[in-house]
């Protein structure tokens, strides 16, 4: 299983102070303690004092409890949420340029339609598309495009939020 499947990995959502060098502190900590980063996404939050890191960590390489506790000791780390893949919604963005001679372009457009991907740019023998979806769906799409010849591909690494509570509170409960 690949990291994107959530196999052998845990996702940490880490809120950090938006200060110079914070990413280096986090990356340096992982390197020094022998923890492995599978993917890392950095983004601003609605509060400009903070940024959010979404870090996918290989769990086989390190006891997750130690990863979290050591991260938490960094002065600039404000809080850490550990997201279990089953209890969270995960998304990843892929941009990919594929070989697409005019005679096979239609086949690729079929896949684009099926996956509800988006065509971003078209060249005389290549096409650039993007897909946002769960990491495994993005994997599938990439796999189906591969035989046509992938010229360039970029994936953002996943971001995630916890799933929401389904059952509304009982209005009759005391």
């Amino acid at each position: 299983m690949s990291a994107a499947d959530g196999g052998g990995t845990t996702t940490l959502v880490v809120r950090v102070e938006n200060k110079a060098g914070v990413l280096a502190r986090v990356a340096g900590l992982f390197a020094r303690r022998g923890f492995n980063i599978e993917s890392l996404a950095v983004a601003p939050t609605d509060d400009e004092r903070f940024s959010r890191l979404t870090i996918v960590v290989g769990v086989d390489a390190a006891p997750m409890e130690q990863v979290v506790k050591q991260l938490d000791k960094l002065v600039n780390v404000v809080d850490i949420r550990e997201l279990n893949p089953a209890a969270s919604v995960e998304r990843e963005l892929m941009m990919v340029t594929v070989r697409a001679d005019p005679e096979i372009r239609g086949q690729i457009l079929d896949l684009v339609r099926i996956f509800q991907a988006t065509v971003l740019n078209v060249g005389y023998d290549e096409i650039m598309v993007s897909l946002t979806g769960s990491p495994s769906r993005v994997d599938d799409f990439e796999g189906l495009l591969r035989p046509y010849g992938i010229v360039d591909v970029q994936r953002t690494g996943k971001v995630a939020l916890p799933k929401l509570v389904k059952a509304a509170p009982d209005p009759l409960a005391p």
Partner: peptide, 14 residues
């Protein structure tokens, strides 16, 4: 200096 000492300080500042 802050890069070199990051892993041997509790915290550092530039």
């Amino acid at each position: 200096t802050t890069g070199i000492t990051m892993s041997v300080t509790k915290h550092n500042y530039l």
